[in-house]
């Protein structure tokens, strides 16, 4: 079976090796790259990210990957933002006022409530939104991913809206996964979420390989 080429956007930040190795584990030919040609040829694109919103967005811009990411997310090819990579897809964040995000998704990233320890650095359970259990990202998990444990590290999160696939409870609902067309994003780290995370990445890679039927979440 062919291994779909998955471009993991490399703009010099963080631990990209785990993302690469986990994608390879579930059948992808995963490459860390900032090469526009390779990214254009890829069956799917992953935008990872750790650290603070501002530096991440600035690093994406400095590497010349901002428009490439925006185009990839709009191309209809599967796209996956992870953690601060997800946050960078929004219009901005309370963490870095004045820094414009990529604007792939609408809205602002907000700080988690002060009633809980920040960062949330723990495993937490997905609460899948009504109508989102058919999302190809989560569909293969028991109960469409509802109740699945995944690993989070973040102090900021998106606010639930029509794109929300799942939230987790951390001082209120924090957005855990979203879908807009074929653009997906997870606040949690699927590459660090053991078997559940690998199952989610396998769904993504199978989508990229055309092995999974494309069903958009009814909420998206």
């Amino acid at each position: 079976m062919s291994r779909p080429l998955v471009a993991v956007l490399d703009y010099g930040i963080g631990n990209l090796r785990s993302a690469q190795k986990s994608l390879e584990r579930v059948g992808a030919d995963a490459r860390l790259t900032a090469d526009a040609g390779l990214i254009a040829d890829a069956s799917a694109v992953v935008l990872p990210g750790v650290g603070a919103f501002g530096p991440v967005v600035e690093a994406i811009r400095s590497a010349g990957l901002d428009q490439i990411a925006v185009d990839a997310a709009a191309s209809g090819r599967p796209f996956l933002g992870i953690c601060v990579g997800m946050q960078a897809m929004y219009e901005g964040s309370e963490e870095s006022p004045g820094v414009a995000g990529l604007g792939i998704l609408p809205g602002l990233i907000k700080e988690l409530p002060s009633t809980v320890k920040r960062p949330q650095m723990q495993w937490n359970k997905l609460v899948v939104a009504d109508g989102a259990r058919q999302s190809p990202l989560l569909a293969s998990l028991p109960d469409g991913g509802d109740g699945a444990w995944v690993y989070f590290v973040h102090s900021y999160a998106a606010v639930p809206d029509d794109f929300t696939l799942a939230t987790c409870d951390y001082g209120g609902p924090a957005v855990a996964a979203v879908q807009s067309g074929m653009a997906f994003a997870t606040q949690f780290h699927p590459e660090k979420s053991s078997q559940n995370g690998l199952a989610i990445l396998k769904n993504f890679v199978d989508l990229a390989a055309g092995r999974l039927r494309t069903v958009e979440a009814s909420t998206a």
């Binding site: 631990n15 090796r17 660090k192």
Partner: peptide
């Protein structure tokens, strides 16, 4: 670190 990242998918 390199070997662990290839085999283990928890933090």
């Amino acid at each position: 670190a390199r070997r662990t990242a290839e085999e283990v998918f928890i933090p």
